[in-house]
């Protein structure tokens, strides 16, 4: 059970990941978000018009 102590000491703090360039990822998910919003708003309009 003393083994558990070992891992606790290891301090693998995160490297600064924000430096990773994820511009394309942000752009991609925003396109995805736009699809969600367009679909929803479009169908809500249809719902209101009926």
């Amino acid at each position: 059970m003393a083994k558990t102590e070992l891992n606790r000491k290891i301090d693998t703090e995160t490297e600064v990941e924000d430096s990773t360039n994820l511009k394309g990822t942000l752009a991609s998910v925003m396109i995805l978000g736009a699809i969600l919003i367009i679909t929803w708003v479009g169908l809500y309009m249809l719902f209101l018009s009926r």
């Binding site: 990773t20 360039n21 994820l22 511009k23 394309g24 990822t25 752009a27 991609s28 998910v29 995805l32």
Partner: peptide
């Protein structure tokens, strides 16, 4: 999940020297 997956793909593409917004694709 969507973010993680795109991030995996982009990180990989950039590690292979991809440039620009969507070059990694």
């Amino acid at each position: 999940t969507a973010f993680s997956l795109f991030a995996t793909f982009e990180s990989y593409g950039r590690s292979k020297g991809a440039k620009g917004l969507f070059g990694w694709f």
